[in-house]
């Protein structure tokens, strides 16, 4: 029997798989990115529907329930994403700053003050 929480998990997984497809259709994802993300969400849906398939690994890790294992994995994934986003934002910010500065300083070397302000 499927539990309520599994239904929520299933809807979420299917929605995310559709969301990946949508991004791929808009050409925001490459084919490889599309396949990688679809695999992730398919595996997620399988685990949600058949939580017992993880029980062997789960018990060996000293975790009681498949759901707990899943929650731990989820937290780890979210932390990884946050860190990866943080690094990306830092990089983009630095590039943006450098390019804005370069544009602001353009021509300063060769022109006199009066000429520069024209």
């Amino acid at each position: 029997m499927i539990l309520g929480v599994q239904i929520i998990g299933l809807i979420f997984g299917l929605f995310m798989a559709y969301f990946v497809f949508l991004n791929y259709s808009r050409k925001e994802f490459s084919k490889i990115q599309f396949i990688m993300w679809e695999i992730i969400w398919t595996v997620y849906v399988i685990f949600v529907l058949f939580p017992n398939i993880t029980s062997g690994v789960v018990h060996r890790l000293g975790i009681l329930r498949g759901m707990d294992f899943f929650t731990i994995l989820g937290f780890m994934f979210v932390l990884y994403l946050s860190f990866s986003n943080y690094i990306s934002i830092l990089r983009i910010r630095r590039k943006l700053e450098d390019s804005t500065r370069k544009e602001a300083l353009e021509g300063l070397k060769n022109k006199s003050n009066g000429e520069f302000n024209k």
Partner: peptide, 25 residues
């Protein structure tokens, strides 16, 4: 004053970035 050099950041980066641009200039 025509002697003042006026630089422009196309987007708002913040005081630190503006000071750095000024110092580099």
């Amino acid at each position: 004053d025509s002697n003042i050099i006026v630089l422009k950041h196309k987007i708002n980066l913040g005081k630190g970035a503006a000071l750095k641009t000024g110092c580099e200039a």
